[in-house]
Amino acid sequence: MEKPKIALYWCASCGGCEEAVVDLADKILDVVNLVDIVFWPVAMDYKIQDVENLPDGSITASFINGGVRLTEHEHVVKLLRRKSKLVIAYGACSAWGGVPGLANLYSREEILRYVYHEAPTVENPDKTRPQLKTKVEEEITLELPDLLPRLLPLDLVVDVDYYVPGCPPTPDVTWKAIETLLSGNLPPRGSVLGASDKSLCYDCPLNETKPDKVLIKDVKRPHEVLADPSKCLLTQGLTCLGPVTRGGCGALCIKAAMPCTGCFGPLDEVIDYGGKAISYFASIVDYADEEEIKKVLGKILDPMGVFYRYSLPASRLRGKIILAER
């Protein structure tokens, strides 16, 4: 019997998701035994034509990590969609935009200007910028992909069948997702694979250290406090997003006394991850006076970065509304 064909591709991603696949360690050999990898630009020498030459729908599953930021990404993911039975958004960036998605707080022009002209490490007196087409010789013109106005989560570009959460997905989650896919017993389309159906608190070893009422008088940033690793971090005033974040990661950050930053994303009922996060977090700030409330919440210097760290492009409002680009 022919083995299932698998493609792996990265869009706007740090490469951590690729590492995560490699982190399967011994198990990667099992994977390789079970499937044929037909496309994996990071690790293997395939060309885009190899994919184009495959019949439509012939790839069993494409694992795509990273958000869609370039015309190239857009082109390849649409191609993979056409060639694949299943498209899996692998990792937080692909699912909701991830950290690179925070660039949606700036316009394309603002980003280019900063990166090529204004960043402190840039020396560019001629104010050159990358050109889409560059003639290098008489006959040869090099083309670069264009930067899209915004970063998009995969499902705003193509239909996505399943999501594997995490920044990056842990080996455990990745393996569970693969097992589910190989089992043939597929969950409903749109499901999150490999993770929990409850929030991180449910798995968190510190959950039972919470007092009856979880209320806080102060907000601290991680570097401002030596957190007690044996007590719920939220109750110590840290912006731990465990309550609003899907479990399944094994509470890795918590075990290192770092608050959850939300890389496993929301649970199914949540409409807007950041909206829900600010709702529960603000609710527990135990003051009634408006000035006190403002003062304490004001200690969150960057609410967009804290509450939308991984999900800005997938949020209800997608990113900053930029008048100039209308």
Binding site: I278, A282, S283, Y287, L297, P303, M304, Y308, K320
Partner: peptide, 13 residues
């Protein structure tokens, strides 16, 4: 409490 924080998020958007 919630709207105080939401206001800053809306500003961010």
């Amino acid at each position: 409490r919630r709207m105080t924080l939401l206001r800053r998020v809306l500003e961010g958007f």
